[in-house]
Design a protein around this nucleic acid. Structure first.
Lengths: 172, 172
DNA sequence: TATTGTTATACTCTATAACTATA
DNA sequence: TATAGTTATAGAGTATAACAATA
């Protein structure tokens, strides 16, 4: 703290009397976001947090995070793939994917098995329980989570949003 | 690992010969995202990472993160506020805001001063250098970062996207 | 008693280097 | 030598409890 030690009165509008100034408008009211509300990244981040939060709520009975759900979905769609392939596709670093798989495997949702061709790699597959949980999760996501977003944005809005986000994710 | 120990050959389509199967189409090709590409939260997250990454690149000469930029913006727009008010508005927890402010203050971008009214609170303000850096940052963000998004989405697309994201952030 | 700033702490994510076993 | 899975580790980001100063 080497900054000039001006007293706060130089900044704070003096209001020694009671409740609220009239002309001052918003004093102890809500803060002004200013240019922040025009910053795409800011709204993007806040929206993402809200959506993930709701995802967790909706899928809470199955105890799945968005990341775990995405792994199960990918395993279901891409049988016979190894850890590196799945992790790369999801943008997860291989070292970090190990603990994640340990968690899913310990809950008997998926399984690793040594490839017969290349004994270095682990082929990943869903277990029967994993498939069952995935099916239930998909239903919860569709009927509760995505349905709520649909309600807020309208079907057209939701599709338009998804398209633009995908475009950013892939081309930006 | 209590799962049935089937050999991987049961899963992997046998292709003992050379390069690529014809009818198999995508074998060692790109993985199928499947329902993942319909999951709003997934694209939201991937897009957010891309946008933050680009923000950091564009504003790299000033060494500001998105979070730091948002603090500077907010201080500029809301002089005379204390740490709790600024932190709450940005969704930052007060304990975590301390180190963040320490960083900005040590670079002489902002300053805390004890309030004359309530000697518990620290009134926050930008320093002259903070204002100068903010001005330069805003220019970089507008001319490089947001301009690039504008190019990708079109002006109307960008506005539509911003509106929907704000709606989610505030009403979801 | 309640609030502001703070410290300490813990837990999750993310990122990099290096080891092992296989190729 | 190169690659797949793994370990160890370090750094952000985020969360909660508790303390000192002040109200």
């Amino acid at each position: 703290m080497t900054v000039s030690k001006v007293t706060a009165d130089a900044v704070k509008p003096s209001r020694p009397n009671g409740k609220e100034a009239v002309e001052g408008a918003a004093d102890n009211a809500t803060l002004q976001l200013g240019e922040l509300s025009e910053l795409l990244g800011y709204s993007l981040k806040r929206a993402q947090l809200k959506v993930f939060e709701d995802f967790l709520r909706c899928v809470a009975p199955l105890q799945l995070t968005p990341a775990q759900f995405s792994v199960l979905l990918l395993l279901d769609r891409n049988p016979g793939r190894n850890q590196t392939e799945i992790a790369n596709t999801l943008g997860i670093l291989r070292p970090n994917f190990v603990a994640m798989l340990d968690g899913l495997e310990s809950r008997d949702l998926c399984a690793r098995m040594r490839s017969a061709n290349d004994r270095r790699s682990h082929i990943l597959m869903l277990t029967d329980k994993g498939r069952a949980v995935l099916t239930r999760a998909k239903k919860l996501v569709a009927s509760k989570h995505e349905a709520r977003l649909n309600e807020l944005l309208g079907p057209e809005g939701r599709v338009a949003l998804l398209e633009m986000l995908s475009k950013i994710a892939m081309e930006f």
